[in-house]
Nucleic acid binder design. Sequence first.
RNA 1: CGGGGUGUAGCGCAGUUUGGUUAGCGCACCUGCCUUGGGAGCAGGGGGUCGGUGGUUCAAGUCCACUCACCCCGACCA
Length: 577
Amino acid sequence: MRYSKSFIYTLKEEQKEATIISHNLFLRGGFIVKLASGIYNYLPLGLKVIRKVSQIVREEMDRSGAVEILMAAIQPAELWKESGRWHEYGKELLRIKDRGDRDFVFGPTHEEVVTDIVRRYVKGYKQLPINLYQIQTKFRDELRPRFGLMRGREFIMKDAYSFDRNEEGMDVSYDKMREAYYNIFRRCGLNFRSVEADTGSIGGKDSEEFMVLSQTGEDEIVACDSCDFASNVERATSIVEDEPGEEFGLKKVATPGKETIKDVCEFLNADSQYSAKALVYKNEKGEYFCFFVEGDDELNLIKAERATGSVEIEMASDEELEKLGLEKGYIGPVNFPNKDVRVICDKRITKRNNLVVGANEHGFHLTGAKFGRDFDCEIADLRLVKEGEICPKCGKGNLKKIRGIEVGHIFKLGQKYSKAMNAVFLDENGKAVPFYMGCYGIGIGRTAQAAVEQNHDEYGIIWPISIAPFEIEIVSLDTRNEQLKSYCNELYNSMLNDGLDVLYDDRNERAGVKLNDMDLIGIPIRVIVGKKSFENGMVEVSLRRDRKKEQVKLGDVINRVKELKNELYRELEEVRK
RNA sequence: CGGGGUGUAGCGCAGUUUGGUUAGCGCACCUGCCUUGGGAGCAGGGGGUCGGUGGUUCAAGUCCACUCACCCCGACCA
C-alpha cells in the first residue's frame, strides 16, 4: 500500500475521548473513528488489524475441527421467547421492529440461532460432535461503553458453539477450544492467563476467562509469580500460614468506647490477627447473616453470596442491627444473641486458639475465644485473598494482584438451550436427548486493542508482527531525489512481488513527519531510505521495538527483511511450545 | 440507572461570570515561497445553523425553560 494513495490520517494531539493509552493510540494513529457512543468505524489500518486477528482465529478454529458459518445479525423475537431470554435479557438487548410491527433483536449472541440451525439438521448421534463458529458484528446496548473497542456496543466477535451427545463429549469439545484459545492468543503475541471464572446464573459446570494482563484491565485477578495459576479475585483462594497461638481461657474484659478492631486491639495490646470482626448483611430475600472474618481480612462479597445462596447481599444498617438485638462494635460469635441470623465464620479464624471477639454486650469484649470450645457455627471461605500470600496450586509462589482484560471466554452450557428449545437427537437406543452444548467467545476488536495496551512506548504502538496492519514499512526520506525515489519504487514493487505485506510512505512530507508517523503506527520492520546512506549504497533497517538501526546494502535489503520477518514470527511460534 | 461534567471550525480550546461591531486562537486543510534524518519557517486563504427548540430583550455564543448528545465516577456486564 502506498501511503499517499491510502486513507491514513494521524493526529498529533491527544484525544480527549480516550482515557487509556490503547484507545488514544488507535485514534491518533487513524485506526478507528467514533460514529456514536460505543460505535466505531474501522479505517484502513484498523480494518487490517481486525482482519489479521480474525485470520489467526479462523486458522486455529479450523485446525480444532470447528466449522465456519455466518449467522444472521438480525434475529426474530420468537427464538428469544422460546429460550426465555426475551424477558431475561434486559435492556442490553437491542430490540427492533420491522414495518409489520414484528419484534426482532440485533443479536448480542447467537445461542438461539445456532441451536435452531442444528436442530433442523442434526437428527442422530452419528452426526455429532459438531462445532459451528462465526466471526460477526454483535450489538449489546451497554450501560456504559468506554475505552474504544475495549467496551463498545457494536463489536466484532468470534463465537463458537459445540454440540455433543453427552457430558464427556462436551468436555472434549471444551478442551479443544481451550487449546485453540491458547494458540490464538500466543500467536497474537499477548501476555495472557486463563483464569477460572464464575459460571454465574447460566449454571454450566466449567468456565474459563482468557485475560490479557494489563494495569488498565477492568477485571482484578490474582496470579502466581512462579506457576501458571491465575484466578478472578472473586473466587481466588490462597495458602496462609498461621500460628494457632497460645490457648488460654475465655475472659470477659471491659473495653469502653472501643468499637473498632484497631481500637480494641490497641487497647488490649493484642495482635489484630487474633481478632474476629463481625459483618452483618442481608440478602434479597430479607434474610440476615453475620459473617466473622479475621480482623485484618476483608470480606469477599462474591464468596459470601455463594456461601449463603444469595443473589445479592448488602450491608445491614445501624437501625437494622438494633432491631436484630446486635450491639454494634461488640458483636461476637460466643453466645450469639439472635437465632434468626445465620452466623458464618471464615475458616481462617476457626484455626486460632485465642481470639478477641465482641461480648455482645455494650462496652465488653472477650479474649481467648476458641472455635469449637467457646462457639460453633457454619464455616466457609469468606475472605478476600491478599497480595503476597502463597499460591494454592504450586504452594511456592507468591500471589500478585494484577488487572486483566477479558479477551476470551469459554463455557460449558450443558442442556440449557437445547432443552428450552427442544433441540434433540436420537441416541443409540432411539431415545431423544437434548444436545450438550458449549459456547466460546473471543472479542476480536478487544483483542487487537489489548495488544496495543500491552505493546507500546512513548512514541506509539509496537505491533506484534502477526497482527500488525503491515509487516514492513518503507520510508522514503527525500522524495525529490530521483535516484532515491526510483530505488524506493523498485524496492516496494519487488516486495509486493515477493508477497510481503508492505506499507510504502511515499508522501512529499518532511522527514520528521514520516518518521513520527512510522513510530506512531508501529509497523514492526522498517526500511528507511535516507540520502546520506543511499549515496553510500546503504539503507537503514530497524525494528520498531528497539528502534536500533542497522545499515544494509541496497541489494541485500529484501533478504534481510525476510530474515527479520521470519525471526519475529518464529519468536511467536516458540512461545507456543 | 444514581452522582458529576461538557457541548463554539475536522481535532484541541478561549470567549459565557457582567448580553452590545464582522465570534477568536493553536493544530489540521488550500495557494505560493522555502524546507527533506525527528511533527520546521514566512506570506496569503477557505471553513461556524456557537448541540437543538422555545422564550426574555432594542440586541443572545452569553440570561431563562425544555430537550438532545457526549464524557467521567459508581452499580452492571463479553
